[in-house]
Amino acid sequence: MSSLEIKDLHVSIGEKQIVKGLTLTVRSGEVHAIMGPNGTGKSTLAKAVAGHPSFTITSGDVLLDGRSILAMQPDERARAGLFLAFQYPSEIPGVSIANFLRAAVQARMGEGEELDATGYYKRLYSKMDLLKIDRKFTSRAINDGFSGGEKKRCEILQMAMLEPKFALMDETDSGLDIDALRIVADGVNALRSTNLGVLMITHYQRLLGYIVPDHVHVMWDGRIVKSGDKSLALELEAKGYDWVKKELVRA
């Protein structure tokens, strides 16, 4: 059983404070959904946890299996089992999906261990088939000229190949068509059953219909202001954020 603990996290960009004291624990096999208005700091939270150099953690801590990861480089955090499915994945011209993932898989192997190329391709193809990604994509440069939905599917392919302990999925649903949404959800559910813990940032109830969350949190101005079970997402969809805001003012 693994855990990812975010403790009273404060994150700023330059002088600007964006995440203002956020606490949340995700355990293996759990799915936590984070919802909240644009610009409240959801992506900032995810990138800061992954170690993006633009963000400064001014106080608080992030623990993976009880050990702080804040001193670790982004690649060390990744190899320790953290995966970020980006809201806006970068394009890397000239670097094919096959070569990139191969390097990423190799990076997780011990010194002197050599990747078995045949086995690797077998696994890659089976994951692609599962996610209904055309095998031709293996030779395409990562995200280069991909449609919005293709990029998101490529993120999930990488996640499936790298088998993280925890995935931070930042609006993976936006840009996916209805069929793709179901395919991606099936993929995530399959990984969940193997004990993947998920922190899922989304704006829409629809995804949560497919990937049923254990907990739903509302993020507002850098903090979690309300938590509940899956019904909270439905309530939000029906009433909008104004409802949360009013509750906040009342409190």
Binding site: P74, A78, R79, F83, A103, A104, A107
Partner: peptide, 8 residues
């Protein structure tokens, strides 16, 4: 950062 996030 994207590539580092994949473990490189």
């Amino acid at each position: 950062f994207y590539m580092q996030q994949r473990g490189l």
